[in-house]
Amino acid sequence: MIPVRIMCTREQIVEICKETARFYDQFAVFATLVATETVDSGQSKFPTGGRLTGNQLAATDH
């Protein structure tokens, strides 16, 4: 397993998993939602300050 962090919509992660499985000739690729909000020192480089918004948040409602 190679753990990675990624911020994208549900549709985007599904496509990333499909491409990863194809590229590495894998039977399956696993992705899981860890959190919808991050906590940091207040100096986040993300424009939303670590909070998911709009499409990103809607994609986590499944």
Rank of each mutant, 00 (worst) to 15 (best):
M1R: 04
M1D: 11
M1L: 06
I2P: 08
I2A: 07
P3W: 05
V4T: 08
V4I: 13
V4D: 06
R5D: 10
I6Q: 10
I6Y: 09
M7Q: 06
M7F: 04
T9P: 09
R10C: 04
R10Q: 06
E11C: 01
E11T: 03
Q12M: 07
Q12H: 06
Q12N: 05
Q12D: 07
Q12V: 05
I13W: 02
V14M: 04
V14C: 03
E15M: 03
I16G: 00
I16R: 01
I16E: 00
I16P: 00
I16W: 00
C17Y: 01
C17M: 07
C17E: 01
K18I: 00
K18R: 09
E19Y: 01
T20H: 02
A21K: 04
A21G: 05
A21V: 02
A21Y: 01
A21Q: 06
R22H: 02
R22K: 14
R22S: 01
R22N: 01
R22E: 00
Y24A: 11
Q26A: 15
Q26N: 10
Q26V: 12
F27L: 10
F27Q: 10
F27N: 07
F27T: 09
F27G: 10
F27V: 08
A28T: 09
A28S: 12
A28F: 06
A28W: 08
V29Y: 10
F30S: 12
A31L: 06
A31W: 09
T32D: 10
L33S: 09
L33E: 14
V34L: 14
V34G: 11
A35H: 10
T36V: 13
E37L: 14
E37W: 12
V39N: 09
V39M: 11
D40N: 10
D40A: 02
S41L: 02
S41A: 08
S41C: 05
S41W: 00
S41I: 00
G42P: 02
G42Y: 01
G42M: 02
G42D: 01
G42K: 01
G42C: 04
Q43Y: 13
S44Q: 11
S44R: 08
S44E: 14
K45M: 11
K45H: 06
K45F: 02
K45I: 07
F46H: 14
F46K: 08
F46R: 12
F46Y: 15
F46P: 06
P47V: 03
T48A: 14
T48F: 15
G49I: 08
G49W: 00
G50S: 12
G50C: 08
G50T: 12
G50I: 12
G50D: 09
R51T: 15
R51G: 08
R51P: 13
T53M: 15
T53D: 15
T53G: 07
T53I: 13
T53Q: 14
G54D: 15
G54Q: 15
N55T: 08
N55V: 11
Q56N: 13
Q56Y: 13
Q56I: 06
Q56A: 07
L57K: 14
A59K: 05
A59I: 03
A59L: 03
T60F: 09
T60L: 03
D61I: 07
D61Q: 14
H62C: 05
